[in-house]
């Protein structure tokens, strides 16, 4: 017994489940984020069809354009998977390429969103126009803020990789960033479905 305990003592990575605490903690955090987005999405749904003045969603939402941006974001998740693979393999080149891909695709998604927002404002839909405007901008804005945070995170990882500080031993860092990125991506799928597709 004493021997087992001594081993445990010397190992900072000892955990009851065998999982890294970072992973457990991050999953918990994502659980919390789920409730955040669930509440925002519910708010949007509650206010569906309750705007007193236009523009109404059916008049203004651009499904083809948003389908493209959704595809872009989905592709970024693929890039994320490949980036993690690159880091695990210890290939600096692959890591840089695919992390760069995530950054580019994520930024492109944000570009689409920026275009959409400004276009809506030109069309006369602001956060104060009606309850659709309020709940739409706050919901998608929150999602956009999450993507922005993710892009900054990816840039940090890219710089680390470029400096050669992202060895296979550090792959947990990329894995957790990936968890976050996939989560944000899935949330977008839900938003895209509920806000854009089912009107």
């Amino acid at each position: 017994m004493a021997r087992a305990a001594v081993i445990a003592q010397d190992d900072h990575h000892y955990t009851s489940t065998g999982l890294s605490s970072w992973k457990v903690g991050f999953w918990t955090f994502i659980g919390s984020e789920c409730l955040l987005f669930a509440s925002l999405i519910s708010t949007y749904l509650v206010y569906k069809g309750r705007s007193v003045v236009g523009p109404y969603p059916e008049e203004i939402l651009n499904i083809p354009l948003t389908s493209v941006s959704t595809f872009v974001l989905l592709m970024s998740s693929l890039a994320m998977v490949l980036a993690l693979d690159g880091v695990q393999r210890g290939s600096r080149k692959l890591s840089l390429i695919w992390l760069g891909g995530v950054i580019l695709l994520g930024s492109a998604f944000l570009g689409f969103q920026a275009y959409e927002f400004t276009h809506f404002v030109h069309e006369g839909l602001t956060i104060g126009t009606n309850v659709f405007g309020s709940s739409f901008f706050v919901l998608t804005g929150f999602h956009g803020a999450h993507v922005t945070g993710g892009v900054i995170w990816m840039i940090t990882l890219w710089i680390m990789a470029a400096r050669g500080k992202l060895a296979p031993a550090d792959s947990l860092k990329v894995e957790i960033a990936g968890l976050y990125w996939h989560f944000v991506d899935i949330v977008w799928i839900v938003i895209f479905t509920l806000v854009y597709l089912i009107q």
Partner: peptide
Amino acid sequence: LILLAFDRFFGANFYEVTAGGD
């Protein structure tokens, strides 16, 4: 609270009855 903040600081309508907010 965030919805309330947007109402108060940025003129959103979440709790504004005249705009359909509840």
